[in-house]
Amino acid sequence: MIDLEFLINTLSLGSLYALLALGLVLVYGILKLVNFAYGEYIMIAGYGLYFSATVLQLPWWATMLFGVAAAVLTSYLTELAAFRPVRTKSANALIVTSFAVSIFLQNAVLILVSPRARAVQLPPIFSKTVNIAGATTPVRNLLIIGTTIVVLVLMSLLMKKTVLGIAMRAAAEKFTTTRLMGVPANLVISAAFIISGLLAGIASIFWIGRSSSVDPITGAAPLLIAFIATVMGGMHSPTGAVVGGFVYGLLFNILSITLPASMISYRDAFMFVIVVLFLLFRPEGIIKGGYTEERVG
């Protein structure tokens, strides 16, 4: 029996996971990079929220801008400093680089801020609950669903209607040929990182919104979710990532309800086992997409 509360819960969780997965797959599509530093963009956005809200006491809209901007900037800077020079090297070199970038950012925050968690003040609306047709749900669950709908519509307009979007889709399919159309390689790659950072930043507001705190390893959990959601949905198209995010949210909620209390701590392990088993039968994920495996040369 599906009640409204379960539905809203699943939709909001799925929305958050879809945003996370989408940001990861955009960069993957073009650079064929599994970006281990992606979680750190979320973490840095969290610290952006912390500084602007708790330390600087800016108004709520300014803190959100500040947090998202921090993620976008970090994403772009990591592309410039680390990924661009390694881009033409082997696929493993690229992955290891992203892992090193991730470790670097975590430890930089550890050194510069503190190993301890910091409390993030979010606008009071995040902690309120509302009653819809008998179902009680936190307002932030509705906010994330609304935000995700807006983001997905804007993203699809960007990818379908603008030249930049068309060029990014083309680059994900045939990178060298796209350059032969006169599209600068650095333009599409930087654009992918910037949008990826943007999505990480937006997702971070809601991720941090659940715990109201941030620490240097805040990024690990959302990174994993994005990983699993993308491989499950399909690494080869943005649609796959979004579908994967929602399926993951559903699976998570089902496991939370059905697993006995003694097994709940194994929930993540169960999730991964299910996903790995699924991949054995369908390695390309739920959605087969158009991204090819051509590497950026």
């Binding site: 030249v163 068309i166 060029a167 889709r169 083309a170 399919e173 045939k174 040929t177 796209t178 032969l180 159309m181 599209v183 158009g290």
Partner: peptide, 14 residues
């Protein structure tokens, strides 16, 4: 080397 996922229009636009 046609972009198979892109429409004819989008190919030309690129």
């Amino acid at each position: 080397e046609i972009f198979g996922q892109l429409t004819v229009e989008e190919n030309l636009r690129l």
